[in-house]
Every structure is written in structure tokens, then in C-alpha cells.
Amino acid sequence: MYIDRLLRLIAGTFTLLSLALAHFHNPKWLWLTAFVGLNLLQSGFTNWCPMMSILEKAGVPRIPPTPAPRSTP
């Protein structure tokens, strides 16, 4: 699995988990939802995300570059 896909899975899991915790335990868990959303927003502008750095250090590969299309004669 590649970083981009794993990153979306982690963000979605954290969001759903924090919403469930806010509903069943304490509404203050919504701050985690806000943190995940703000982190996704800033990574859209800066192209940097702390979780990507963590996943790279863990050895998760990036998406390989797509090969150039072959020209047919």
C-alpha cells in the first residue's frame, strides 16, 4: 500500500473515531475532528503533512512514477 492511500485511510479513521467518541463519551473529542480537518486543509496548501513524514520513516513507499507513454511510429 502506498502513502497517499494509507494517509486517506488514517484521516478517515481518525475522523470517524473522534465523531463516535464525541457522540458516546464526551463532545470534547470533536477537537480531534477539527485538528484532522485543519491538518488536511493546511496540507492542501503546503503539500506537507506530518503523517506523511511518519509514514515515510516507517518505510511506506510513495506512489511510483508513471512511465512515459510510448510513441508508436
Rank of each mutant, 00 (worst) to 15 (best):
A58S: 08
P67S: 08
I54F: 02
M51E: 01
F24P: 05
L38Q: 05
L55R: 06
L32F: 07
L41T: 08
L7D: 02
L55T: 03
I3T: 07
S53R: 10
K28D: 04
G12I: 01
L40I: 07
A34V: 12
S71Y: 04
R70S: 12
W29R: 04
L17P: 00
A20D: 02
L55F: 10
T66N: 02
P69H: 02
P27N: 00
M1V: 09
M52E: 03
F14W: 05
P69I: 06
P27E: 03
N39M: 15
L30H: 01
P67Q: 05
I54T: 09
A11V: 00
P69W: 06
F45L: 15
T46S: 13
P64E: 13
A11F: 06
L16T: 07
L19N: 07
W48T: 14
R8E: 11
P73S: 07
M1P: 02
G59I: 06
G37V: 13
I63R: 15
P67N: 11
R70K: 15
F14H: 07
C49R: 04
L19Q: 04
G12F: 02
R8S: 03
W29S: 05
I3Y: 00
V60G: 00
T46W: 08
R5F: 03
L40V: 12
L6Y: 06
W48H: 14
H23Q: 09
R70W: 03
A20N: 06
